[in-house]
Structure formats: C-alpha cells, structure tokens
C-alpha cells in the first residue's frame, strides 16, 4: 500500500502498535533526550506522564487531548472525560493529589452555547470529585467544518513522594482490575444510535485518584505498576505493561468482571470487551503477599466494588499476554485500530 505510509491514519491514533510506531518514528526520534537526573521519567518512557525529581518530591505532569463522538453519552460527556483522563493519568504514576489542571478548548463555529455551558458544568463537577481546580486555560474558535464540534485538552500537575512507573511488573505479581471492563467503549458505540439497540449502557468515566490513594495506603510498596486501560482496553494495557517489564501475563478470562449487558452488546457486534476503552478503571500489578489486602481496600471504595484479581505475571512467554478461557488458552491479540462492528 502506498497511502498509509505517507499519511497519518486513524489506526495510528488508536493506542496500539501503529500508534507507538508513529510516535517513535516522528517524535521520539527528534524530541526524546537524556533525562536530567537518573530516575526521571521522560518522553522516551512513553508512560502516562512525566516525572522529575524536585528535592525529596516528584513533580508529575501529563497532558491529554479529548475528542469523543457523541459529545454527550450515557454516564458522561467530553468535559468529564477531559478531567478524568488527566487526573487518572497522574494517579497512574502514583500522584493522587493533583495540584491543578489546565484546560484548552477548541470550538467549531456554530457550536451551541448551551452545550458548551453543559460541558463546563460537567468539568466543574468532575474537578470537585477529583479534588482539583482548573487554574489556567485557553479558548479558540475555528471555522465551520474545520473540526468536528469541540476538542478539549487538559494538562495536570501533581507532587508525590513516590513515583510508580508502568514498567514495574515482576514475575509472580498478581494483576488486579478495579472493576468491570469495556463499559466506556461499548457505551459510546451504542450511543451512536445507528445500531438500533435498545440498551442503556453507561460509561464508567470518573476520576479515580481517590480509589488509587486508598489502594496505595494499604499496599505500601506492594503495587508494582499501574495503567488505566483506556484506548485498546485491557488488552492494550496488559500488552504495554508486559512489554515494558519483559514479563509474560497469564490472564484468566473468567475472572475478568464484565457487565452482562456489555457482554451482550459485544456478542451482537462481534467486539471483544477486552479491546475497548475504560475511563474509570485501573489495572494494577500487585505483589502476591499484598494482593488480598489491596483487593479488599479497592473493593471498599465506591468505584471499586467489582474489583478482581484476574491474572499473574509469569517468566514464560515474555512480553505476551496468554488468555486462559476456561476451555483452553490463546495469546490475547493486541487490537489495532478502533474496534468496528463485524459480520463475520
């Protein structure tokens, strides 16, 4: 093929292999350099955010742009998504007390003011839940047709005394998910309305720094890595964690919590809930001796009631995720591109 090498495709933004390759070839090649201090986490780490040492603290920053169609969906909207996305990325580094967020808004000419106000209100509520405020921002309006509705960008800053990189998994660690998988991705797909489905799937979009704080409080140094399974779902998150830590992961499919209606929509559309986004969940590696304690702490939090231990890190099959289905085993395939309904 000729075209896809010369132009950026949607697949390159979907969180999988194609995206990592684009980032590597275009950005890391030119922008990544040696970190200021050993131990700092910079661009080359491709972690959820960056961390630099300031005295005895770590300064953690992250940034995220948000587009979603539809803008309003059951369980949330683009505003809530923009706050949760950034707060959660900070939390994934172990920084659960964000100091501030920034907000940049790019709006298409003709966008309804009432919708903009609704989004702003939603941002306010999500910030309150996360215990953070928007401290600075930027607003741009572009011509009709130059973008699809609205784009939000948020950046976040936090301080923490301990950073948890996403590459910390070790053989023997248990894999914990803090709740049901696939809720956001399938809710948004169902909300597009052209599938003639009568079902009210709700996105799980929520800031989860509180839940992570509760888990870290009982874990000590027992949490070895964290990732929020957004684009590409649990499958992508586990692949990335296994790849960076050079361990294998054995995932027990039957232990993974999936809502029955999410499973049903997945079966109807031929989409695996493990391949679609979550916006209010965490995948954690936990030292085996702390696994039950962390599980109990997560379950005690309102956003973690359905948490479960779903897998184990293994020495065999490094950088791969082996799925035990209860019938047999297979390698979990990393999704490439946005999952689409299929007929075969």
């Amino acid at each position: 093929m000729i075209v896809s090498r010369d132009r950026v495709t949607l697949k390159m933004g979907a969180g999988g292999h194609a995206m990592r390759r684009l980032i590597g070839e275009v950005f890391l090649e030119r922008l990544a350099g040696p970190e200021m201090l050993a131990g700092d986490i910079g661009l080359a780490a491709l972690d959820d955010g960056a961390a630099v040492r300031i005295g005895d603290q770590w300064l953690v920053t992250t940034t995220d742009s948000h587009v979603v169609h539809p803008i309003f969906f059951p369980g949330g909207d683009i505003g809530r998504l923009a706050v949760a996305g950034t707060v959660n990325d900070l939390a994934m580094m172990g920084a659960t007390e964000p100091v501030m967020l920034t907000l940049a808004v790019v709006i298409e000419e003709g966008f309804a003011r009432a919708d903009l106000e609704r989004i702003a209100e939603s941002i306010r509520i999500a910030c309150a839940e996360a215990g953070v405020r928007i401290m600075t921002g930027d607003t741009k309006v572009m011509g009709k047709g130059e973008l699809d509705g609205i784009i939000l960008n948020t950046a976040g800053v936090a301080l923490t005394s301990r950073v948890i990189p996403d590459r910390g998994l070790q053989v023997g660690d248990r894999i914990l998910v803090t709740g049901t998988m696939g809720d956001h991705g399938l809710a948004v797909l169902a909300a597009r309305g052209n599938l003639s489905l009568e079902v009210e799937l709700r996105s799980d979009v929520a800031p989860i720094n509180g839940l992570v704080r509760a888990a870290l409080a009982v874990a000590g140094d027992g949490i070895t890595a964290m990732k929020d399974p957004t684009r590409g779902g649990l499958a992508s998150a586990l692949h990335e964690m296994a790849d960076k830590a050079r361990v294998g992961i054995l995932l027990e499919e039957r232990a993974v919590p999936i809502r029955p209606d999410v499973r049903a929509v997945g079966e109807l559309l031929g989409i695996d809930p493990l391949h679609v986004a979550n916006e209010g969940k965490v995948v954690m590696g936990v030292r085996p001796d702390r696994a039950e304690a962390v599980l109990a702490a997560v379950r005690a939090h309102p956003l973690g009631r359905e948490a479960a231990l779903v897998g184990t890190c293994i020495a065999d099959s490094p950088r791969r995720v082996v799925l035990d289905t209860g019938f047999g085993r297979r390698l979990l395939i990393e999704p490439d591109g946005e999952p689409l309904p299929r007929i075969c």
Binding site: V3, S4, V8, L195, S196
Partner: peptide
C-alpha cells in the same frame, strides 16, 4: 460492513480512501 474497511485493494483500502477524504460509513445492517 466494518469488516471491509481495512481490506487492501490493489493500491489502497477504504480506510486509506477515508484518510484522503472519501466518505465511508460503517453499518451493522
């Protein structure tokens, strides 16, 4: 159908045509 989007033709797929600006709608039925 979604299955067809990425299937390559002689020099490009429908997904590639979409990247160039062509209109392609995915349907379930």
């Amino acid at each position: 159908y979604g299955d067809m989007l990425k299937v390559p033709g002689t020099s490009m797929s429908l997904a590639d045509a979409q990247t160039e600006g062509a209109k392609v709608d995915i349907v379930y039925s």
